[in-house]
């Protein structure tokens, strides 16, 4: 028991001994999320790092019911769970789909779109480490522009990922989802508050959690939270919520340099200052647009 008040809820529903890499941001994301949801939660996890990380049979790090499912069906799986609970009149359970960026923005986007369109009461969380990390750092549609991955190798003829990162939150907004937000493991209280908000929604909710990966991004494992913070301070990963179409952007006095953020990571090492400059322009453009969305939707 805490003699002094701890910064977060004390209950641990994710036990130590999981097999996440050293400094894995996906583990912060899981630990904080479960602190928000509490034990009356069913979690469905497709192929992703978290398919392996709970442990090898008969081990599990979870203290909540947990189901493994196929790569592309997270949202269909939680639709089935919610329907089953509804069929038996059970209302007080949080149904949580937990997938990586590949499992969400690529292979799982169809099932997710279906679930959100149907208005299923379930929470879907994408923990975003910006590539297929479980299979070993392959490009996903959520990999940012400029990044090296094992399938966007930097060579003489082809180089880094040229396409920009797919914006899942905006895709959710286009569905008219009642609640969607971005969250960052460097702001656990904010993350927990957003998960709690999502739990209260009588319908679908989607949270995009920024979860740096030391193994795939090529930085030392102790810098996970530092890098996560810089991403938001540099406006590369703005924190915002969209509640029934109304945008709220979290503003920070502190700023960070995009160039410094990128140069801390081996995956961006090949970029020239000119290339970083053009990426920076697009970051600023999007952030300004977000502020306009906020202004416009708050006024309505």
């Amino acid at each position: 028991m805490a003699g002094k008040k701890l910064p977060l809820p004390e209950e641990e529903l994710m036990d130590p001994g999981h097999v996440g890499c050293l400094g894995c941001g996906g583990c912060h994301a899981m630990r904080y999320t479960l602190k928000a949801t509490g034990p009356r939660t069913i979690i469905s996890i497709p192929a992703c790092c978290w398919a392996v990380m709970p442990g090898v049979y008969p081990n599990t790090c979870f203290n909540i019911p947990h189901i493994n499912t196929a790569f592309e069906v997270t949202a269909a799986s939680i639709s089935g769970i919610r329907a089953a609970l509804d069929a038996r009149g059970i209302e007080d359970i949080t149904v949580l789909g937990w997938a990586g960026d590949g499992g969400t923005a690529d292979i799982g986007i169809q099932a997710l779109s279906g679930m959100v369109e149907r208005g299923t009461k379930a929470m879907y969380i994408m923990y975003d480490n910006e590539a297929y990390m479980n299979t070993g750092i392959q490009r996903s549609s959520s990999t940012p522009i400029g990044a090296w991955t094992t399938t966007t190798q930097v060579g003489k003829v082809r180089d880094y990922k040229r396409a920009p990162k797919k914006n899942m939150v905006e895709i959710m907004v286009a569905h008219g989802i009642p609640y969607t937000a971005t969250a960052n493991i460097a702001w656990p209280k904010d993350l927990i508050a957003k998960v709690k908000k999502a739990m209260a929604v009588d319908g679908p909710s989607f949270i995009h959690i920024f979860a740096p990966c030391p193994t795939g991004w090529r930085y030392p494992p102790d810098r996970t939270l530092e890098i996560a913070r810089m991403a938001t301070h540099a406006k590369i990963f703005p924190l915002y919520e969209v509640e029934n179409g109304v945008y709220t952007v979290k503003k920070f006095k502190k700023e960070a340099s995009i160039s410094e953020y990128m140069m801390m990571q081996g995956r961006f090492r090949h970029l020239t200052q000119e290339e970083i400059g053009s990426i920076s322009e697009s970051v600023v453009r999007w952030y300004d647009k977000l502020l306009k969305f906020e202004l416009m939707t708050q006024e309505e």
Binding site: D15, P16, G17, H18, V19, P54, G55, V56, Y57, P58, N59, T60, C61, N63
Partner: peptide
């Protein structure tokens, strides 16, 4: 199915 905790089962 399983539920043996990694606290005991998997000291990392």
């Amino acid at each position: 199915v399983c539920n043996f905790t990694t606290i005991k089962g998997n000291p990392t």
